[in-house]
């Protein structure tokens, strides 16, 4: 096999371009989840929010023939499920892990049901795709240009959104409240920061981002919906938050590393001839998970485990000490 066909200058650009585009749904959801976890909530419902966002955006784009409205619908349903998660986990203070899994079950059932009710017996419905837009000048930069600046509009919006949310968390007053609430809700409460309000907002943002991730998957890549189209990306997003040590920019980077290994394994198969190769395909398929594991273990061993928000997963009730 010729590695130059994978890592040669021209090939590498194509590989990177493919990885960032396909990693985007996971990246959006992961950055949103970072905010949620920094606020002290472990939201395992990401997969459900992503899936619901995918269906909602597909349906609106299909019937209203508008990609923009579709994307908004994806965000809206994500925010809605974020609100459900917040109601259960913050307002009622029920067990977060179970809330998240319940949301996944709910979403898997309802999306499959809705899709089947609407399109049962028909051919696979599709929507028109959106064209790639080359950003003038920037896309001519060798290397980086084609990777980052020859993508579709949703891609640019997603990058902007992800960075905005990262900045929101690290550079704003609200972000400070989020971190305070996640680290020590009692102390934050004493400092007149509303724990409930902050966590609610964090979950609405996290849900919206996951919903947007679903919209990007459907509107930006597939132009169609299938049962369980999210295919586990929400679970990967949860893993990536921890992998990125709750730092939104690292999480974003981690999502692209994951996307890169994923794209790499497919590329290696394409170059090595696939059918002729004797290496089991499962080894390639396991690569993204194994790489993520190794990097994460290495990072934890190297840095210690201080990164986890102090109150992650613990419900907070005013006046009750933990």
């Amino acid at each position: 096999m010729d590695w130059g066909e994978i890592f040669g200058p021209g090939a590498l650009v194509v590989l990177l371009s493919s990885s960032v585009a396909f990693a985007m749904p996971t990246a959006l959801a992961a950055v949103g989840e970072t905010v949620v976890e920094r606020a002290g909530i472990l939201n395992l419902g990401v997969e459900g929010m992503l899936l619901s966002g995918a269906l909602a955006s597909f349906l609106v784009a299909y019937y209203a023939k508008s990609v923009a409205l579709g994307a908004l619908a994806g965000i809206a349903i994500g925010v809605g499920l974020g609100a459900l998660m917040a109601f259960l986990s913050v307002t009622l203070g029920t067990e977060q892990i179970i809330n998240g899994i319940a949301i996944v079950l709910l979403a898997q059932g309802i999306t499959a049901f809705t899709f089947e009710e609407l399109f049962g017996g028909e051919e696979q419905p599709t929507i028109g795709g959106i064209a790639d837009v080359d950003i003038p000048l920037l896309h001519e930069i060798p290397g980086v240009g084609p990777v980052l600046f020859e993508q579709n509009v949703l891609f640019y919006i997603s990058v902007a959104l992800a960075i905005a949310v990262a900045l929101l968390l690290t550079r704003t007053r609200f972000g400070l409240s989020v971190r305070a609430v996640g680290e020590s809700p009692a102390a934050a409460d004493a400092a007149a920061v509303s724990v409930a309000r902050t966590r609610w907002l964090a979950l609405l943002i996290g849900g919206g981002m996951a919903g947007m991730g679903g919209a990007v998957l459907v509107l930006g890549q597939l132009n169609l919906f299938e049962t369980n189209v999210s295919a586990g990306r929400g679970w990967i997003a949860v893993a990536l938050v921890i992998f990125g040590r709750w730092n939104p920019l690292l999480v974003l980077g981690g999502a692209f590393v994951f996307g890169f290994t994923d794209a790499l394994q497919i590329r290696v198969q394409a170059v090595s001839g696939g059918i002729a190769s004797t290496v089991p395909t499962e080894i390639f398929a396991a690569l993204p998970y194994v790489v993520t594991l190794i990097v994460m273990v290495a990072a934890t061993v190297w840095a210690g485990r201080d990164a986890q928000p102090g109150a992650l997963g613990a419900p907070f009730r005013k006046g009750v000490s933990a």
Binding site: F22, E226, T227, N228, I266, I275, T281
Partner: peptide, 15 residues
């Protein structure tokens, strides 16, 4: 050829 390791993941199929 490519074997993507999943029967349902359309995004991976596209990739």
């Amino acid at each position: 050829d490519a074997y993507i390791g999943d029967w349902n993941d359309a995004a991976k199929g596209k990739q």
